[in-house]
């Protein structure tokens, strides 16, 4: 699949945003009123800004952004629609939570329930995003049990890394999220390892012969058109195996560096800012690979022997 930057940006930015939001909600609901108004304001604004920027960027790749509202209508069947609904529904709760938590609108009793609801909605939104991909039978690498967990843990890892960074900046204290950050990074590494192993081991047992009904010995002789069409551009992207391997390696290295930095942050809190950026970059690498290595079954019609 063609790794469209708007979509990569959307999923990574809003992932980090929702992750942060979820962690804010959860920590707030357990810790209560924030020690620092600045922290609350900045982290809430940042979370919502990341989410909003991501959502906006995802509308940029729409042919008709002005009709985007229509995407809310099919929540009964479409995960994309559900994502939209979940995203929208999250906003008022997140705002209410932010107001309460920051004390701008004093409602201490509401913090915990609002925090939990916001966290839940954030995770649901990320879940729906993951589902969009995981339910596509046409792309074997996405149609995997681990697709959704990876999305969720990426949200948590990048959200928690950001949380760490913000805490460090405002409170010089890694805060309660440090273990979550480390744990989610570790889980992510494991999940991603398992995911990649799964897609590498999954038999590419759909053949050009199945697609065309022409049996085992079929090969493409002539393309329908001599210049590439939409389907080839969108679905036909391939990344060289070698290249893919290197990027996977890079991903692990980035995760490792992030873990080390987050550990280091226990003593030098500000390092966690760097850690966040490293996690964010790793998210980009992972997401790019997720697309680039998402082999679409339609490529069988365009010369791919197996998918």
């Amino acid at each position: 699949m063609n790794p469209a930057y708007s979509v990569i940006f959307f999923t990574t930015a809003s992932g980090a945003g929702y992750g942060l939001l979820a962690l804010l909600g959860l920590t707030a609901s357990s810790v209560g009123q924030s020690p620092s108004l600045a922290f609350v304001l900045v982290s809430m604004v940042l979370a919502l800004a990341l989410i909003t920027a991501g959502l906006l960027s995802s509308t940029f790749h729409l042919g008709h952004p002005e009709r985007a509202w229509r995407a809310l209508s099919q929540w009964k069947t479409s995960w994309l629609s559900r994502e939209g609904v979940a995203a929208i529904v999250t906003y008022p709760f997140a705002l209410a939570f932010g107001l309460a938590w920051s004390g701008l609108y004093p409602a201490p009793d509401a913090i915990a329930p609002l925090g939990v609801i916001t966290a839940l909605l954030s995770l649901i939104t990320v879940f729906t995003t993951g589902k969009i991909y995981a339910t596509l039978k046409t792309i074997r690498a996405w149609h995997q049990p681990l697709t959704v967990p990876v999305y969720l843990f990426f949200a948590l890892a990048s959200g928690s890394a950001l949380h760490l960074a913000l805490s460090a900046f405002f409170t010089r204290d890694p805060g309660p999220v440090a273990p979550v950050a480390l744990l989610s990074l570790g889980t992510l590494a494991v999940l991603k390892f398992l995911y990649w192993r799964a897609i590498d081991q999954a038999p590419r047992d759909r053949t050009m012969g199945d697609a065309t009904g022409l049996g085992d010995h079929v090969r493409q002789w002539e393309v329908p058109h001599t210049t590439k069409n939409f389907v080839q551009r969108e679905m036909g992207f391939v990344v060289a195996r070698r290249h893919g391997k290197r990027l996977r390696g890079l991903f692990y290295i980035l995760l490792l560096v992030a873990v080390l930095l987050e550990l280091l942050a226990i003593t030098i809190p500000l390092v966690s800012i760097i850690a966040f950026f490293i996690v964010f970059i790793s998210a980009w690498v992972e997401r790019w690979l997720f697309f680039a290595q998402g082999e679409h079954v339609v490529t069988l019609f365009y010369g791919n022997a197996q998918a």
């Binding site: 699949m1 790749h61 729409l62 042919g63 008709h64 952004p65 009709r67 985007a68 229509r70 995407a71 479409s78 994309l80 969009i132 596509l136 039978k137 046409t138 792309i139 697609a211 069409n229 939409f230 389907v231 969108e234 679905m235 679409h296 079954v297 339609v298 019609f301 365009y302």
Partner: peptide
């Protein structure tokens, strides 16, 4: 009513959906 999100083209195994850049719809 199509917003041109292209998701349907991803969901089609047969490559039957093609996006029209100028019209912004599938």
């Amino acid at each position: 009513t199509c917003i041109g999100c292209k998701l349907c083209s991803w969901a089609c195994p047969y490559g039957a959906r093609e996006y029209d850049v100028q019209e912004g719809v599938m």
